[in-house]
Design a protein around this nucleic acid. Structure first.
Lengths: 150, 150
DNA sequence: TCCAATTTGCAACTGAGTTGCAAGTAGGAG
DNA sequence: CTCCTACTTGCAACTCAGTTGCAAATTGGA
């Protein structure tokens, strides 16, 4: 689902170059895994996929790179309602935030883009005088298919 | 902030009685800590406070009781944007959900109740045919005071 | 009062993420 | 192209949150 056909691959790499952040073989592997992901990946999955490109990639490098990407505002960190353990999931940050819905029964993750969400953020900025940098809206419940077959 | 003057203390205990859930000294201590909390507590803080009431309370009992409360839909689990480590925070679930805003500079947590949030949930239920049981909206950014003094 | 079912404390464990450090590397200056 | 420094890496050991198996203790209804 985080598969934006409108986005060029290599955008993360480009961002690194622009900001003068050093590019390494390991980072290239990790960035390309994140850029080509077709579903939400956790750190362990990113590690495994990155090692297929460059076997030398270490767990700590994955965490350090994820930290860097977070600080640069290039990825979002998700919990997905802790449907599978305590870990986190990552996805490229796009122009528009979206809601994540996790089915507590089948584990499926759905995404939903809503104008109301954008408006809600604007309302918070105005009413609470709070500058919103990151936001995360997750819902847990039952998806259409699981709702019926209870 | 999770301090609802309109709510009777003992409501969690009452819920346990209604559903025939066994009441123990340890659970009583833990529930009263949660019910009288004036700010968001993590598991370690709940443990310490509960031990002041009943020193026999163990860490594992706290986690087991928190799990029970979650399953009963009596508390919400929060991340508060991981402003202090990886742990979770807990608060009693009230009739209306609210947004949590975490200041990335001073660490202050603010809460905000918004009709738009309720509407957004309804929109998801309708448009996505998704039954929402729990929802969590957290924002990270800068609060009014920190925004000025950057 | 008794007793089965539930709950507890304990201690050992898991799994995610972090850290200090010596060795390796990127990439700009010359 | 070569050199050099600041940055980055792998490793291994660690922290911290949360979990689990089990024998002993407790609850609350019969």
């Amino acid at each position: 689902m985080p598969l934006p056909q409108t986005e060029m691959p290599g955008r993360l790499q480009a961002h690194f170059a622009e900001r003068g952040i050093r590019m390494t073989q390991q980072r290239r592997a990790i960035l390309s895994v994140i850029e080509t992901a077709t579903k939400h990946l956790d750190a362990a999955q990113i590690l495994r996929k990155a090692q297929k490109i460059d076997p030398s990639v270490d767990r700590s490098t994955v965490y350090r790179t994820l930290g860097l990407l977070k600080r640069q505002g290039l990825i979002d960190e998700l919990d997905l309602m802790h449907i599978n353990g305590e870990g986190h999931y990552y996805e490229r940050k796009l122009d528009r935030d979206h809601i994540h819905m996790a089915c507590l029964r089948c584990g499926k993750i759905a995404e939903f883009v809503s104008d109301s969400f954008e408006k809600l953020k604007q309302q918070v900025e105005k009413d609470c005088r709070f500058r919103v940098l990151v936001s995360r809206l997750e819902m847990g419940g039952y998806c259409a298919s699981c709702r019926g077959s209870q």
